[in-house]
Design a protein around this nucleic acid. Sequence first.
DNA 1: GCTGGCACTCGGTCCGTGTGAGTGCCAGCG
DNA 2: CGCTGGCACTCACACGGACCGAGTGCCAGC
Lengths: 340, 340
Amino acid sequence: MAHDDRRLQVLRAIVQDFVSTNDPVGSKALAARYDLGVSPATIRNDMAVLEEEGYITQPHTSAGRVPTDKGYRFFVDRLSAVKPLSVAERRAIEKFLDGAVDLHDVLGRTVRLLAQLTRQVAVVQYPTLSRSAVRHLELVPLTAHRMLLVLITDTGRVEQRAVETPVDTDTETVAELRALLNTAFTGAKLAEASGKVGDLVEHAPPHLRGLVAAVSATLLELLVEPTEDRLVIGGTGNLARGNALDFPGSVRPLLEALEEQVVVLRLMAEVGPSTVLVSIGEENEHEALTGASFVSVGYGSGDQALGGLGVVGPTRMDYAGNMAAVRAVARYVGQLLAES
Amino acid sequence: MAHDDRRLQVLRAIVQDFVSTNDPVGSKALAARYDLGVSPATIRNDMAVLEEEGYITQPHTSAGRVPTDKGYRFFVDRLSAVKPLSVAERRAIEKFLDGAVDLHDVLGRTVRLLAQLTRQVAVVQYPTLSRSAVRHLELVPLTAHRMLLVLITDTGRVEQRAVETPVDTDTETVAELRALLNTAFTGAKLAEASGKVGDLVEHAPPHLRGLVAAVSATLLELLVEPTEDRLVIGGTGNLARGNALDFPGSVRPLLEALEEQVVVLRLMAEVGPSTVLVSIGEENEHEALTGASFVSVGYGSGDQALGGLGVVGPTRMDYAGNMAAVRAVARYVGQLLAES
DNA sequence: GCTGGCACTCGGTCCGTGTGAGTGCCAGCG
DNA sequence: CGCTGGCACTCACACGGACCGAGTGCCAGC
């Protein structure tokens, strides 16, 4: 019915207006700024219904309406068209990311780029180890009973750990060990690698078995642990930008939650490439994020994400724009990593 | 004279009181809380003098006094005793830093530790490459004309860069090249390494010369560039903690300056180990930091610093405590890196 | 089912007042 | 000569009432 239809247009207008002005929006202002073809009084009726249904609310009696989390959710799911990026923006992305020299640099540029495009806090996850493949394993002898295990993945990540060896080793043994490891693991997805470890130890020549076991143990640690703790964050200054109203209490818990990383990583765990995930206000499990929204997407060349990236901002954010920016950046990053 | 002496005690009391209460401090409160042995009226006279000399100021006519940057400077230089850390704190430091698995982890823990101890924003610089020594150089063939150069330093840093080779290479050539590089560079300070590059190219066997040149060029890049862009920041949530008065405008420019990294790195460039550097308010060159103070010190085993670490906070901070914390943490980090 | 009119609500702002912390100055005291 | 108590003065800030205007809900009429 034209009836319901207009009501949704009213909701869309409210969201758009509130996002751009940060003022609760009243019926009169709506009628003036958006061409809804009806009078303020009619809009008021629609607003009353929308409020009853929980899509909007009034901060206080004589103020305009503000979208609720539910309102934003509806807007994101049903009312917002994907906003294609301008040519200039696409070019900016390319230009910004080109010339990155290594993974660290790529992610650093990415996070700055995202923060700049969206004017929000940007987060970028390092490529998960479990979905990367081993490019090379290197052993560097430090002392007779100590060596450094270096893992280089096809996504450009480099991880390292010291290994205490049970027996003294000479360079020759190390070379042998290195060859053994690389034959076994090079090219293997890290997720599969964990499975191979047992095999390897079993089939290792007797004089190396102890060493292989020690190194494998460390390698396993490498595969499991650090997936947790790698996140690049940027644009935190944007939190202090908008109206103080954006974040009810203060930005402090939010900053702390971001530094925790775990919180964000858990959110990112759910994203795949191609589908942009939007988590709005109260939908976020972590308390510190209940006043914020999170827009994220996975990046990676294949169908499985290597990692996630996204932005965090007030629920009052430009969802369409941020979703577009996040998706576009993820696509470029995916390409970039596939190339290298 | 007892005269001047008391005036300095008054200044010290003002700083201490203001730091802990965040209220401009009046003559009466001073007389009550600190045992200065004189009446408020006398203190008022001293305060008038201190104000004339520029050590304190009144926010407005009928308010108490607040230290100026000059006042803090005097306090730091002449009035504050180094506050030794409690045994519990020392133990906490040890406990917190032990169990770090690699450099990234060490620095991550350090920054969290510092932020927690001081309740300020903490910054930790990665060990400068130029003062580290080469532990190992690794070449990983990617394609026939592309390889990855990995530099591992004695401080645990790992840097990598892709190298486009002018000619196709096979594994044997790569092995030869690797051996050549490691004989030339292993153990060398990176600062010296730059000098050796020319020599190496000249004396390289003819069939490798092109390769050596290409790799060396990349190596040089590695030595120069990334010293700029490595900084770990933590505890930014602490900025939003204290009174809003602490940072006049907002915390935004400060957050942005911190993300810039360059600003902080320039400050850190000046620090050596053993001497704690304190930069107060207007003393900071960068505009965004003029409302903040910066306490930093170098860390490293020898007499030259491998890098710097420190905290950033409002000029109204506990200088003695922060200086002690920063120094203690730097000492532990230095030890930790020397061991590994 | 839309519209214009109308009474009502209530947060924000402005303004005048009171209050209290803090000051500077001064005369007197040890 | 320096310290002290007293005193008049200043001024930010909190409090409270009045006013204003945006916005609402409701209702009768088209």
